[in-house]
Design a protein around this nucleic acid. Structure first.
Lengths: 193, 193
DNA sequence: CGCGACGTTGATTTGCCTCAACGATTGTGG
DNA sequence: CCACAATCGTTGAGGCAAATCAACGTCGCG
């Protein structure tokens, strides 16, 4: 159960056996069926989760009911609403399973305890957040400077596996266009070849 | 010279006198005149800088010459290209002073040394990056779900000081529209009142 | 003084949205 | 296991937000 997360952690920091044991003791194993919410708008997010199995999306929902997808997460990715989690305030996000999923989660108090006992984890989480920031900067730039077609092709290239697993209308919302328009983009792509 | 940064650091972590002295010894004080580049596309970013005085922007530049502004930074803000800095690879960004500016900078090796000697700094930088990520998520969502008018008003509300200090066409690029269109948005806003 | 940076305005075009209608596929309760 | 509903993707018509291009006025500064 912990083999995946141990390999994950080892990429960033080195821990003794006792430290690993302590770490494990702070984690909770959860199974969640497809189409369930880990978090809904208005709730305070009290988990950070590493995905062992499954697929999860986080998205905003505006008053008109339009979803804007912030992230698709699959195996070896973390999901949370860090703003809500770290500032302990209500979230604007929904986090929903797209497939039956298995997670290892840690809550706010246990994460604080973890940092206290094993400061090296500050480093790991700093590096994780740092990488997320870099990726989001790139994505923000794409959303402003590129056309829907370019963003779609880039998505396929970057996340070929995810593209197989999630429905097309959600890919549309991820790249920031309507499902109808993505369908039209695809049909012009086919005509080109 | 260090009073601002000491106050800044104290918001996140507590340091002894010796630790502060060590920290100070790793910083470099720089003055940079208006309209100079701290970083240009293709260079590896070897600094993180706290702004003591002045105003700086970071932006992408596409092949057609269009700028997309990622950040305006003024007093008490940090600037860098963290991706380039931490992965030591060429940047896609430009970082340019908009006013005569004064900075405290730290380079890659000294930051590594800092983390090694005073692990608490991992915490501070984690929290900083975390906050940046939260803000950028919000901004990404705005760029997709709101109109130019809404984003402009939100900018004025959020950064009234910056709005006085930077030219209007750069605010346009920050909120992701053309300078001409922002001008039109403003003129319809005036007509409304 | 003259020139470049800046902001405005108008005409035209375009990328994408909304709405509506329609098949195809999936899945689910009876 | 079937029947019906929901989900999903496609296509077309029409509309709107914002881009592009071009011309012009103003101002601050070297």
């Amino acid at each position: 159960m912990f083999s995946e997360i141990d390999r994950f952690v080892a990429r960033y920091i080195q821990l003794s056996e006792e430290e690993l044991a302590l770490f494990h003791s702070l984690l909770r194993h959860r199974k969640v069926r497809k189409k369930n919410f880990l978090l809904q708008e208005g709730e305070v997010c009290d988990f950070e989760a590493l995905i062992l199995k499954g697929c999860i999306r986080t998205y905003y929902l505006d008053k008109e009911g339009v979803e804007t997808i912030l992230l698709f997460a699959v195996e070896e990715w973390w999901v949370s609403d860090i703003t809500s989690f770290s500032e302990r305030k209500p979230s604007n996000l929904f986090i929903e399973t797209l497939e039956d999923s298995e997670l290892l989660t840690i809550d706010f108090n246990d994460k604080a305890r973890l940092f206290e006992k094993i400061p090296a984890f500050e480093r790991m989480f700093r590096l994780l957040v740092q990488r997320s920031l870099g990726m989001l900067q790139q994505r923000y730039y794409s959303s402003i400077s590129q056309t829907a077609e370019e963003r779609y092709l880039q998505f396929l290239e970057k996340y070929p596996l995810v593209a197989q697993r999630v429905p097309q209308h959600q890919i549309a919302r991820y790249i920031g266009v309507s499902p109808e328009f993505l369908s039209k983009v695809r049909s012009t792509l086919f005509k080109k070849h």
